[in-house]
Amino acid sequence: MFKIFLSIIKRDFKLSYRQGNTNLNIIVFFFLSISLFPLGVGPENELLSKIGPGIVWVSALFSSVLSLDKIFQADYEDGSLEIINLSVIPLEFFVLAKALSYWLTTGLLLVILSPIFGLILSMSSKGILYLTITMLLGTPTLILIGTIGASLAVSLKRGSLLISLLILPLYIPVLIFGVSAIDASINNVSAKPQLLLLGSLLCFSIVLSPIASAAGLRINME
């Protein structure tokens, strides 16, 4: 079963490598939305460094919402999902494999690029360090929660985006703890509680969201 888990990840890697530009689009969207904020609120470095963590995190939320609604779409439409459902691997693990490969191909890129975003928003080096750490802990959670909406939306021609938006309120804890960890580090307060909370949110969603998403996929396969 673990072998199938790995082969799903391997296949998704190949697919995203060959299709390339969809993943790139997410990065571009992310970059673009971050660069729009200074245009909106003004170029003062002091202000930007203050609201920088929030800007990066809100952009991360939106870019994952906008891109995730199609994560199961192709496998659902061409029938791959049915083959997997008839195989020995439970759908819950399929969801986990999809989320993991998705995170490795997009989320990880955002984590690696986040120091750059920190720099252009003139955050301090400590803030940038914690931005990267919180992104590392938080982006997998965002993707896992997002799979719930995506699994429900998979059979819909219209309204798939709307369902992803329904998931948005569930992202609030990640946003709050992510930003407040960075704020704490900038103000020289220990950010440990926030990081621990982000970690526990991640553990929580690793266990629970595959269950919800697999249930959502089963509904749509009927």
Binding site: K3, S7, L15, R18, Q19, D75, D78, G79, I83, S87
Partner: peptide, 21 residues
């Protein structure tokens, strides 16, 4: 439907199904 991924080769498509089986 044919559960075929367009960007993968015939061999790679088959290989994925074979791995599942």
């Amino acid at each position: 439907n044919n559960p075929i991924k367009n960007t993968l080769s015939c061999y790679e498509n088959l290989f994925f199904w074979a791995e599942i089986e």
